[in-house]
Amino acid sequence: MAHLSEESLALLALGEPLDAQSQDHLADCPDCTAEVESLRHVVLAGRAEPPAPAAPGPQVWAAIHAGLGLSEDVAEDPFASPRGAAPDGAETNGAEKSGTVHNSAGTAGAGSDAGAGAGSRSAVVDLDARRRRPRRGVPYPLAAAAAAAALLAGAGAMWAVQRPGAEPAPTLVARAELEPLAGYTARGAAEVDVRPDGTRQLVVRTDPADVDGFKEVWLLAPDATGMISLGVMAGDEAVFVLPENVDVSQFPVVDVSNEPVDGDPTHSGDSIVRGTLEA
């Protein structure tokens, strides 16, 4: 038989059982075996639970703290904090810690953020909520997205005072740098323009990307609890007219996904580039 598919090799590396025919092939095929072993190394590293290495003594943090002139706030040896003391507490620990950082970085955006999160849910964005374990959450800085949402609310006010027809050319009101997500290198940019007739358009450009499906453009809520599909993107530049009732401040994240041709209308979860619109 032919070599095993890449997907079968990945499943094997993760420890999933294989049908008899594939097992026979694997037993005879050094190439497939080597690939499984190589992937298996990654899986084992991720699953490993080696004994925690010994922490440096408290004098080391004290020296760093003094050397850098850090604030009193962080004077305590990070290893001494009660959050880190009990191994059993590690799970809540992670959530608590990142929560702390979020709060310290994103206090200003907290209100608008909660509002954006209340929208409708789709299969893709709901993933985190359905996970059995508590999770840290969003894949991009919530605080930044929330701040952008606040900025966009301001931009909305600006649109309101623009008289339709008064400007001959589209007016740029928000812009996003689109950064590649894992597995991709393409970058891009998106901008929201108000056209002379008062309608808004989203112009999306990306570098050529190696996609095995087709590209689809989405607007995401800052915490990814909701998303709007704007449509298919053919080529490397596309213009979408934004529906009048879409509030971009609630969906400020521009996302271009790689969609398999499988008839499934939801987001594949395979994003090529993503960025947050800022006024």
Partner: peptide, 26 residues
């Protein structure tokens, strides 16, 4: 348990949040 480090800490670290330095140290 989930890892204690997440992308939001990367951002906080880059932004100069001293708590993120403490978290990185831990």
């Amino acid at each position: 348990p989930p890892p204690e480090w997440g992308p939001e800490l990367d951002t906080a670290f880059a932004a100069g949040d001293e708590h993120a330095l403490g978290a990185a140290y831990r």
